[in-house]
Design a binder for these strands. Sequence first.
DNA 1: TTGAAAGCGCTAACAC
DNA 2: GTGTTAGCGCTTTCAA
Lengths: 330, 330
Amino acid sequence: MKRVTIYDVANEAGVSLATVSRVINGSNVVKGGTKQKVEEAIEKLGYKPNAIAQGLALQKTTTIALVIPEASFTYTGQIINGLLDVAKIYKYNIMLHTTTEGINEINDIIENIIKSRVDGVVIYNDKLMREELNTLTKYNVPIVIIGNKVSDAKISSVYVDIENAVYELVMKYLEGGKRDIAIIQDRKNGYSIDQMINGAKKAYATKGLEFNGYLEIPGQYRTSYDFMKDYLQDHKHDLIIANRDSQAIAVVNAAKENGIDIPKEMEIVCVIDTKYNSMMRPQISSFAIPSYDLGAVSMRVMTKMLQENTDDIDKEIELSYLFTPRQSTL
Amino acid sequence: MKRVTIYDVANEAGVSLATVSRVINGSNVVKGGTKQKVEEAIEKLGYKPNAIAQGLALQKTTTIALVIPEASFTYTGQIINGLLDVAKIYKYNIMLHTTTEGINEINDIIENIIKSRVDGVVIYNDKLMREELNTLTKYNVPIVIIGNKVSDAKISSVYVDIENAVYELVMKYLEGGKRDIAIIQDRKNGYSIDQMINGAKKAYATKGLEFNGYLEIPGQYRTSYDFMKDYLQDHKHDLIIANRDSQAIAVVNAAKENGIDIPKEMEIVCVIDTKYNSMMRPQISSFAIPSYDLGAVSMRVMTKMLQENTDDIDKEIELSYLFTPRQSTL
DNA sequence: TTGAAAGCGCTAACAC
DNA sequence: GTGTTAGCGCTTTCAA
């Protein structure tokens, strides 16, 4: 099919292109008769407005860039779903970018985002990337950060107070006389882990104690499972807190291997879980982090930033978590 | 920061915009000196070419639309990663669209895709959507289908022969004298299930038998677990084949509940699994479906379609699977 | 080697 | 109500 433009439609309908444009954009100044002629022409020619040309003329693309870390779709999937659902409602398109480890990588993405002239960018990334954000704001691109509490003239954020979640959890255990608490760390997810550790530290400090239950594990399930199997032979804790359910599961399985009864001898909690947690035995107690909402609300905030005066919006939105006890805790 | 255009750069450098354009696009006819002047001006002004304007002028957007079903990122995540990695190499952007159930929904997406003038679209969807594909080809958009074997002037496909995978598996069991085989179905993933059933039918037919081991289950883990718990009280099979590991896990857990020994009394295989499978006990035997490769190869094929004469490319690419026995089979 | 100018397809003042 | 026209920012002939 030959490319059909607004001119072709105008010719076919015997009107000017301005009129066609009006019809496309639902202007109600067009007379019924002409409108119908135009619509028939559009139908007949199979005309679809060129969003690129519209973008050029209007200086906006109605697309949002979404930046997420590569690989972990298990956890970001729900965020994406939430974001896309809201984006659909407001007719925004989503350009997907994933970040890998390299620093150059991220600069390429920023460059790319600026060139593509998206109307805004939503970032879910564990690393804060202050500097990269600055180049984005320099180009006046509105930003929404998922998972971190930050804000600025052009930056909003939607997050869950994980630090406090862990604080409350640890406090409960400390008050129950259980003091041997460890937090699992891996090299990824640095920011989340930092928050978790801060929460624990705070709780310990409240009790006049010092926290140092760091448990550094490898990045993959298999290796961390092996690691834990060794580790648990001569260590045990009252409570182990993991970031992801997969890490918690590694602990659970390793504990089984060592004949450690969960939850009686050792309890386990994770911060974020997936649908697979419900298939495990025991199921891991977790904080119900509202992933879908994180995505949906972020996109909603973005649409607001794009419509209203930025000053009038709530720039930092905290979503609530809910501790959900399951079989891995008493 | 004020919007800086190619004109500004031209002024700053004291050359015409044509020259700036040449420098941006790496034309080697520009003299060293001028080139440097231009580059300095670009640097000084922080100029980034407007991809939208380029798209208009060049009639191409260097972006590809990716269409996937909503929700199941657990399984599509790797596909996306593969696709993005290759897209990055060839400097293509990815526009992400997810399909939900409604039929109108999908038409909206197609409409949207056409308007956005992407250079091509990659579709991973269980429903074949012949008609929708037609409207896309009518507008000359190159298409790559993941998971289905289809091809056409403007359509390529990358897939795994699941029918044959199941055929071989079932044959093996039939030859071992095990004839009570069932395939789990849910309403989603219709096409994959059809292939699986066809494979089973073929195998049975080869042996002069008829296959009718359909096992219709609910869509969610919890409900299908409950269903299986009931079902297994008075049914048992030699082998149950599921599409997803989550479904297989529902069976495994329900079997445990009923004191059925897996794999001794009943064996279970799934077609696609996730990293969570390795955390389960027993681990489900599965076909190693190369998800990442499905994505990567699809994107690679797309780049070829975009560069070469479509006739010269291999339009149907079959990726191989590998049956991986684990603890759920003997 | 560089510049001038005609598009690419559309929107939005402005004029009629 | 409808048409005319000047952009939006870039690429690419065609001349010089």
